[in-house]
Design a protein around this nucleic acid. Structure first.
Lengths: 344, 344
DNA sequence: ATCCTCCGAGAAATCGATTACACGTCGATC
DNA sequence: GATCGACGTGTAATCGATTTCTCGGAGGAT
């Protein structure tokens, strides 16, 4: 591979001049032409590693997500990648596999690789490296998940409005005994969703008793299924369930099907996160859609602001209820939701 | 951030010695201890950019995939990432978005970043950069998709066995008029699947007329739906459909549901790619499962072999039929497939 | 005609590591 | 006791770019 010295020789100038031409710093007309010709003839492309060493900028951002195979994170990663790319940055995606130790490991290697900034959707709250990132001065932005004690802006969705709409939706459809499947207490995201849902229901005089709050240690479909089983074995089972994650919803649906129960006749189901196939499920599922792509975009912009030394605040974008048929009302029907339902 | 010079000073040795200690080259006991103590006290971590410049090894692999939001690629990427990581490499994932120009763009930036090797699941066959990668001497391994004219080993799944089993399965269940939804003619993967399916059916005296071969320009669900619509409007519609991609299957199912047709009573459906929720669909879908994780692992190993200068041949791993209920036979029942069906 | 300014371009330092080479020390050998 | 190896360590070159400093020449002002 040709390097800058080869180009300089061929063009009959110094390496400094080549560098200046390529970075648009000063040289003009004649020299410029010669240099560009040499670059073309040799097929020269600057070595980014050398450039990064000198400028202390790698043009690379890091993104750590909880689980690469979770469609929510996938879409988030896709959006982040798109935006980063269009702004001239590469993205290194790290998959924490929902394990804090693996996450820390990944953060370490990203730091060693001198990324310009880091986006983290943290697995758990016990990451010790996050503190070190802040201490090291590497710009950090949290994504989707808050981490208590880490001083960095956070870009995430606000479920208040959507959950308020959901409570109204359920109330209007006559569901009086709702339940929720969440992550274990202590998980900021889970705690918040539970709290907001409970508050929203209360406004309609509907209670959310503790028996109807099912926590799963794993955020997987087996956990969702176990919780649904417990709900159904209750003396007075719920008539509507909100699953706060798409995988847990899968498990819940399996348990319903195994018992021959039908959605929405026997049980209303609402799922957090808009996964493409939910729209094609039978019946199409009512979901709480987070503005995933916007979150990704906003996160990149917030991070770039920090990289460029500008101040950057946290961002909170509203999630919204997308009413389809899994609570008993067809999507096209009279649905107590002000925002437009999406077309199939 | 402390650098190697700071460590050398603090330990009272030269930078060479520090480097040697850290890379386990020679120094012993006493000096070694002093250096390690200094490293600890300063929290020193070597700058990978500088190291990469000197050693011409970045410890980074590139992976280009067709579409980050396609669950098949997601699982593939996850497997590749896992394996690369466990072998001490980082992975930069590039999302081609199924567009050859964006793919070329991405390959260029990866090359500029001096990655040690590249894995490509190519979008289309018209990528001009792939030739340049080979020419540049960067180790290249194709993944899942062949690209004619590119001299590099390819790691992918062999559908012959699975399609042979599928033909037997369909024949045993009395399906006499199968159809297939594929990518347009000229797509190596699509062409091959069509050819193998047709051959396998022929062995059972079943024809696959051209009217029952539906090509979609986009590999999206809209295309799948359009093809299914055309099939159903045929004077003599098929009684079984093989969708060669999970997104196209989604569209096909939508069209069936819109017409009130049921799987498997009115139409058998088989899908290429094992996507988690297929198992939870109603009815659970019969699929052709590619050994995705094994493909990812094999690809990394093949690439590392090339990086280390060893010879590396192409790898072909068998896909297998996972018979569930979408062709009319319950998964637990008598199914003409020698391999074990998976548990739910 | 002389001097000053400005601008383009080259020489060389620099980023932070690795590593070839050279040197000094020590113990072993005859 | 001199010579030779082996070994540990320091010096300095090197990777490929960017950037500062410096210089020489051209052109304008006096």
């Amino acid at each position: 591979m040709a390097n800058i010295k080869d180009v300089a020789e061929r063009a009959g100038v110094s390496v400094a001049t080549v560098s200046r031409v390529l970075n648009g710093h000063s040289p003009v007309a004649e020299t410029r032409e010669r240099v560009l010709a040499a670059v073309r003839e040799l097929g020269y492309r600057p070595n980014n590693v050398a450039r990064a060493l000198r400028t202390a900028r790698t043009g690379t951002l890091g993104l750590i997500i909880g689980d690469l195979t979770n469609p929510f994170f996938t879409e988030l990663a896709d959006a982040v990648e798109d935006e980063a790319r269009s702004l001239g940055y590469s993205l290194v995606i790290g998959n924490a596999g929902e394990r804090p130790d693996q996450q820390d490991d990944y953060i370490r290697t990203l730091l060693d690789r001198q990324i310009d900034g880091l986006l983290v959707s943290s697995a758990g709250t016990g990451s010790t490296m996050l503190g070190e990132v802040v201490a090291s001065g590497t710009p950090l932005v949290l994504l989707d998940r808050i981490v208590p004690g880490v001083d960095a802006p956070c870009v995430r969705a606000d479920g208040r409005e959507a959950l308020t709409d959901l409570a109204a939706h359920l109330a209007a459809l006559g569901r009086r005994r709702p339940a929720i499947i969440v992550a274990p207490a202590g998980t900021p995201t889970g705690d918040e969703r539970l709290r907001l849902f409970r508050t929203a229901l209360a406004a309609h005089g509907i209670a959310l008793p503790d028996a109807c709050v099912g926590a799963t240690p794993d955020l997987q479909h087996t956990g969702g299924r176990a919780v649904m089983r417990a709900f159904l074995d209750l003396p007075e089972p719920p008539d509507a369930v909100l699953a706060t994650d798409n995988l847990m919803a899968l498990g819940a649906m399996d348990e319903l099907r195994a018992r021959g129960l039908r959605i929405p006749e026997d049980m209303a189901l609402v799922v957090y996160d808009e996964v493409p196939w939910f729209r094609h499920a039978d019946p199409p599922l009512t979901v709480i859609a987070q503005p995933t792509r916007e979150l990704g975009r906003a996160a990149v912009h917030t991070l770039l602001a920090r990289i460029e030394g500008r101040e950057a605040a946290s961002v909170l974008l509203p999630a919204r209820l997308v009413a389809r048929s899994s609570c008993g009302e067809p999507a096209g029907g009279r649905v107590p939701v002000p925002r437009p339902a999406d077309a199939v």
